[in-house]
Design a protein around this nucleic acid. Structure first.
Length: 930
RNA sequence: GCCCAAGUGGCGGAAUGGUAGACGCAGGGGAUUCAAAAUCCCCCGAUGGCAACAUCGUGUGAGUUCGAGUCUCACCUUGGGCACCA
């Protein structure tokens, strides 16, 4: 019945008439062995010719927009890209099979510093570097067979794109969403540019890593802080975002509720506004503190050199985490006195204190040392009074050198207060106090946010020019929209630091859009995060003459599934959420797109073992060591990283061993002969255990990085195994949100599996269409359909792949008739097609599938086939499995119970007594309690 | 310091409150081969036992439940985020 498998013989490959793109007929060499290099280009061409990835607006179908975070064109794709885009591709292809009209675009986040750095280092123009890189990377991505609509591709450095960004900037200006102000900014001394607060990490530039300096500059800002409350509240609705990302954004926006009020000055001049989240501790006030950058501090500084000197000292403090932790509290008594709002006879001193930030709240506070550690440290240092306002109920002792700061939900006893009960929680007391102050009219409850406006000016060349003009007569005027784009000049040099636009001989010169007189262009360009804040919207109409085409945007938005790295949890995603709102206000996006990403998935990294050896190096001849020995006699080791391909790796009793391939070959050993390698290594170990310079240390799971040499180039993998293997591997093994460790054996296992599937398909294609013995296989098929579908739907790609392994085992062992086997194998092709699209097409056509598998409707599992007629029920005794019985699936409960109680193990356990209780869960389990 | 997430074999990891360890890797045994590679088949948590089987077992300790990897509380460890934000 089953035709014998004859490897090496050619086979006829059938395909349905009428569904044959040209490439089908050109197929000349049916294969018996899986050769990705032959299969993959062929099907990519077939997809191209059929144009199946071109997104088309089809009002009769539901739409689905899949987006992966677009790449920076650094020059080469890496495994992280492969993993990211493969996940998106699985979703995209799956949704397409399910009947959705899918949009799956790709573009380039192309502005930014590296292009300028390259220009500085090796000459040339940043644009040339960027577009060359894009070409290379696109060339590397194409072989992956991604279902991307390349007709929508753009780079953010295309004038068509950034021109629309400029148009939108002008719209934002009109709506009051952009403004210019003089501000103390974060200046990166290496990149010679300004950074947003979000881009300063531990006091250092996010890109350069250099400690950030403070500078006063006139800068452009987006009014993102107007949306603090909305951006925070809307997080609750983002059910399909990772909890982690929502928490990070909520912390970043940082809402607090408090009381704002003014301390009247004893000398009658303007009062001092303060903000506090603990107004209930007002009776414990010790002094009023103002920031060194507070207007009062600045005024005093101008007239008093002693204060000026003190302030220089106070502002010095570093911004790094350790610096803040160890920073000493510094203060200066201004001599100013203010009145306590509840008792005009109670005077408080006003101190300038280095720990008070100007840009949070009002830049001024009242200090309650008993219940705030910072205030307490300050008061102890300058010998200011410390007064308890409440005590612990359990341990009511006054504060010494540790402030008493219980959770706001803990009930405490109040010793001095003016509103609320004698025993109350902090929360209750705060509420009562705010109410009291508002009624008395001296204060009001306010909401404060940590989020500040987004400074977007950058003093760089390779970015989107800010489309405004500075006119002596008219001031700052937006460029006319018909003059857009304001293009970057081509003739620039990077031989000196600073902004080439500033020193360009003519680029700045222009006519004032308002009065027509000679004027100067703005030379700042936009932060590159602006470019990535709306690209998802542009993809819906990438060639429109306006930023978006509202009709297209209304159809395609929102992004149904966004996929990217966790590193963008705050910056990019917060800015994009703001931009979507601003674009809605300007009419570029529909109301529903104010929250642009319906679902977000953050994928893990691809890691690889790291191989580290050491090299003994001689110190410089002139150097001397501490004890005076000439340095050239001193040896020390320097870590040396090895590329995986230069390493011979094997395991000795499960312990990973690695040696440099060069060393092994010099020893005259065969790198593939593990047993002699182990003998060699063990012998070496016994002879001279102290000297093992040749053995490399193996560190697992390090993020792939060029400097650590633990990179695997996707191009090499595709050359060696094919795209389908690379795709299959990055999805298997680890859950997508976690890191996946790239291992050579894992990649080989993936390749082997695909070969097995192919071989099974070849064998089945040769069978005749006989019936018989089909039941078991059909059940396995429907179970696979069910399980794989569930896996994809829930982002459990690794689980879906495991089910496909199991299904392959079932199919290859099946004794069913040819007809059933062919159906089973076609279904295999369909279920695998989101992950391994090329191999799936090959198998599909080999087995007479109609058209392209990429266009076939996703199979639906028959529920009836998922339930077995007879089930194996485990029998538990007191919750421990002790036996099992096989029964018809719908056997009555008491029948099952009778059978269970007759089991040997149960009889033994009962020892003649009656069971206390018997639980029968139909089709699941029986538990006997004795 | 505050907030969040995760701890399961030698390894990556599966498990709607219902047979813990699916699937893969590594390892062991066998078939095929002159031999090897490739391929195919079997075994593979720990302890005891020739075996049937028994006992233990999902970071630690308690709890809820007929039944807990899964739910609750406390703790430990690791990873991540925030942090002089009043």
């Amino acid at each position: 019945m089953t035709a014998s498998s004859r490897p090496g013989t050619t086979r006829l490959i059938r395909h349905a008439p009428g569904h044959s793109p040209g490439v089908f007929t050109s197929r000349t060499r049916p294969m018996s062995r899986y050769t990705a290099a032959d299969i993959e280009p062929k099907w990519q061409q077939a997809w191209d010719e059929a144009g199946i990835f071109t997104a088309t607006r089809d009002e009769t179908k539901p739409k689905y927009y899949v987006l992966e975070m677009f790449p920076y064109p650094s020059g080469r794709i890496h495994m992280g890209h492969v993993r990211n885009y493969t996940m998106g591709d699985v979703i995209s292809r799956y949704k397409s099979s399910c009947g959705f009209s899918v949009l799956h675009p790709m573009g380039w986040d192309a502005f930014g510093m590296p292009a300028e750095n390259a220009a500085m280092a090796q000459g040339g123009h940043p644009g040339t570097w960027t577009y060359d890189n894009i070409k290379t990377m696109k060339g590397q991505m194409k072989p992956l067979g991604l279902s991307i609509d390349w007709s929508r591709e753009f780079a953010t450095c295309d004038p068509e794109y950034y021109g629309q960004q400029q148009a939108m900037f002008i719209d934002f200006m009109e709506k009051g969403l952009v403004y210019r102000k003089n501000a103390t900014v974060n200046w990166d001394p290496v990149d010679m540019t300004v950074l947003a607060n979000e881009q300063v990490i531990d006091g250092c530039g996010w890109r350069s890593g250099a400690p950030v300096e403070r500078r006063d500059l006139t800068q452009w800002f987006f009014k993102i802080s107007d949306y603090s409350g909305e951006l925070l509240d809307a997080l609750d609705g983002l059910d399909n975002w990772p909890e982690k990302v929502r928490t990070m954004q909520a912390n970043w926006i940082g809402r607090s509720q408090g009381l704002q009020f003014s301390f009247e000055r004893v000398d009658g001049s303007d009062g001092i506004e303060v903000y506090t989240t603990r107004p209930d501790t007002l009776m414990g006030a010790s002094f009023v503190g103002i920031s060194p950058d507070h207007p009062i501090s600045k005024a005093l500084e101008a007239e008093n050199p002693e204060i000026a000197a003190q302030l220089v000292e106070m502002r010095k403090g570093g911004t790094t985490a350790e610096a803040i932790e160890t920073a000493e509290k510094l203060g200066y008594d201004t001599g100013i006195r203010v009145k306590h709002p509840l008792n005009p006879d109670w005077e408080l001193p006003v101190w300038i204190a280095n720990f008070i930030l100007m840009d949070y709240g009002t830049g001024a506070i009242f200090a309650c040392p008993a219940h705030d550690q910072r205030d307490l440290d300050f008061c102890r240092k300058y010998d200011l009074p410390v007064k308890d306002t409440f005590l612990s109920l359990d341990d009511p002792k006054p504060v010494e050198n540790e402030a008493f700061v219980p959770p706001k939900t803990e009930k405490v006893k109040w010793v001095d207060h003016f509103a609320g009960l004698d025993e109350a929680t902090g929360e209750e007391a705060i509420e009562a106090t705010v109410k009291f102050a508002e009624q008395a009219g001296w204060g009001k409850g306010v909401e404060q946010f940590r989020l500040r406006d987004w400074g977007l000016s950058r003093q760089r060349y390779w970015g989107c020019p800010i489309p405004v003009v500075h006119c002596d007569e008219c001031g700052v005027v937006p460029e006319k929209k018909e003059n857009l784009p304001v293009k970057l000049p081509e003739d620039v040099s990077f031989d000196v630091p600073g902004n080439p636009l500033d020193r360009h001989p003519t680029w700045r010169d222009c006519a004032c859009p308002s009065c027509g007189k000679p004027a100067k262009r703005e030379t700042d360009t936009m932060d590159t995060f602006v470019d990535s804040s709306w690209y998802y919207a542009r993809f819906t109409s990438p060639h429109a003459a306006t930023p978006t085409d509202l009709e297209e945007a209304s159809y395609w938005m929102n992004v149904d599934q966004y996929i990217g790295g966790i590193e963008h949890a705050i910056l990019h995603l917060l800015y994009s959420r703001f931009f979507a709102r601003a674009m809605n206000i300007c009419g570029h996006l529909p109301e529903k797109a104010r929250e642009p990403f319906n679902a977000l998935f953050t994928q893990g990294m691809v890691t690889h073992e790291m191989y580290v050896g050491s090299e003994k190096i001689e110190a410089g001849e002139d150097a001397e060591t501490a004890d005076g020995t000439p340095a050239k006699l001193v040896w020390h080791a320097r870590p040396v990283y090895y590329y995986p391909e230069d390493v011979v790796r094997f395991e000795d009793s499960g312990k990973p061993m690695a040696f440099s391939k060069k060393d092994v070959e010099e020893e005259g050993l065969d790198p593939n002969d593990t047993s002699s390698l182990i003998r060699w290594w063990r012998a070496q170990d016994e002879l001279d255990p102290s000297d093992e310079p040749k053995r490399l240390r193996v560190y697992p799971s390090a993020k792939m990085s060029k400097s650590k040499c633990n990179v695997v180039d996707p191009v090499n993998i595709i050359d060696a195994f094919g795209a389908d293997t690379a795709r299959w591997f990055v999805l298997s093994d680890s859950p997508p949100e976690r890191d996946v460790e790239w291992t050579a054996s894992g990649a080989e296992a993936a390749a082997k599996h695909l070969s097995r599937v192919f071989a099974t398909a070849v064998k089945i294609a040769d069978m005749d269409d006989a019936d018989g013995n089909d039941e078991e296989l059909l059940r396995a098929m429907h179970k696979a359909i069910h399980d794989v579908t569930m896996g994809i739907e829930s982002f459990g790609f690794n689980a879906a792949i495991a089910k496909l392994y199991a299904y392959q085992n079932a199919v290859s062992k099946s004794k069913a008739g040819g007809k059933a086997q062919k159906l089973a194998m076609r279904t295999m092709a369909q279920l695998m097609s989101p992950m391994t699209p090329h191999l799936s097409e090959e198998i599909w056509s080999m087995l007479g599938g109609e058209g392209l598998v990429a266009q076939a409707a996703w199979p639906i599992a028959d529920e009836a086939m998922l339930v077995e007629d007879t089930v194996t029920l485990p029998i538990q005794i007191n919750g421990k499995r002790r036996a099992e019985i096989s029964v018809p699936k719908d056997m009555a409960k008491d029948e099952v119970e009778k059978l269970a109680l007759a089991e040997d193990a149960v009889v033994r356990a009962l020892d003649g007594k009656a069971p206390k209780k018997v639980i029968v869960v139909p089709g699941r389990i029986v538990n006997v309690v004795v």
